[in-house]
Design a protein around this nucleic acid. Structure first.
Lengths: 150, 150
DNA sequence: GGATATCATACTGATTCAGTCGGAATTACC
DNA sequence: GGTAATTCCGACTGAATCAGTATGATATCC
């Protein structure tokens, strides 16, 4: 029941990209330094985020990374799935399909609990966007993204 | 974000003890066989459950394990904490105390999400009891619970 | 006393995880 | 065109955690 460091790092880094959204691409090195994440490791994560279509990389000098979508359209669940694969509290209650392994044991008393846990987790992760994250972080009143929440 | 096998095993085994609650102590071996759990491994888990005060062991022939409390007074969270320690999605959002490590980084955009996730998980785990588990398992209209048996 | 159990500790093998290395390809700027 | 900046890529490694085993001691019923 613990988050991987991949997820922790990726979410923090994505939050920073969201902050800078709309401006120039942000070089990975700076993100790694500010967030205190090993640079090469973050590079690996960014590759996965890119393959998942969440970010775009611009090569060469003055290059860097930027979001492909609006911060309000990227959820924490999206990020987690990109770097850690499908969310699954156990093989019995994976998202996607094919829980054939446990289906036959339909008399398993634990199954309903895990299913409830799984859907609770997924619903929290999928209902929080990068925009939400920035909005609830006090230290950030970002230029550009104001507008009236409430 | 995955359950340990300790938790999966322990919860299944405890559900079986709950089923037999009120009768004779149940030997570990039978539980292990019926639930398809390595016996010696389960023994290890039962020791932790015992130290946590959730079950009682009766030694010797005709011995076995039984619940110390009513099934309605034992939650899945209790079981999980007994075998896996405190529930914590990350060091920033552990239950108990001392999150000094991340407290200084109070500008961390991810923190509120993890806190929400943590409390969502805990609330599901702590609101489901063994009694609930049996009640929602269709295949069980248990015969064992009316005393006589043998 | 012997069979049946729980109780206790220590060990091991495998898998996963976090992080690293070395280098190739691309682009801005001079 | 050269150089520095920067993304892109695959493979590798060391460490930690996890799942499961081995061995034996202690208690209790018959």
């Amino acid at each position: 029941m613990k988050l991987s460091s991949r997820t922790e790092y990726a979410v923090r880094a994505m939050a920073e990209l969201a902050e800078m959204h709309g401006g120039d691409p942000v070089p990975l090195r700076g993100i790694a330094e500010r967030q205190d994440i090993p640079e090469k490791y973050l590079e690996q994560l960014f590759r996965q985020l890119r393959k998942a279509g969440l970010i775009r990389g611009v090569r060469g000098a003055q290059g860097g990374y930027s979001l492909t979508r609006e911060p309000r359209d990227v959820t924490v669940g999206d990020i987690m799935r990109a770097v850690d694969g499908p969310i699954a509290v156990c093989s019995c209650a994976a998202e996607g399909e094919g829980d054939d392994e446990c289906e036959r044991k339909s008399h398993c008393a634990a199954h309903p609990v895990w299913a409830r846990l799984q859907s609770g987790i997924v619903s929290i992760l999928d209902s929080t966007t990068l925009y939400d994250m920035l909005a609830e972080t006090p230290a950030h009143d970002i230029q550009g993204n104001r507008g009236g929440g409430s």
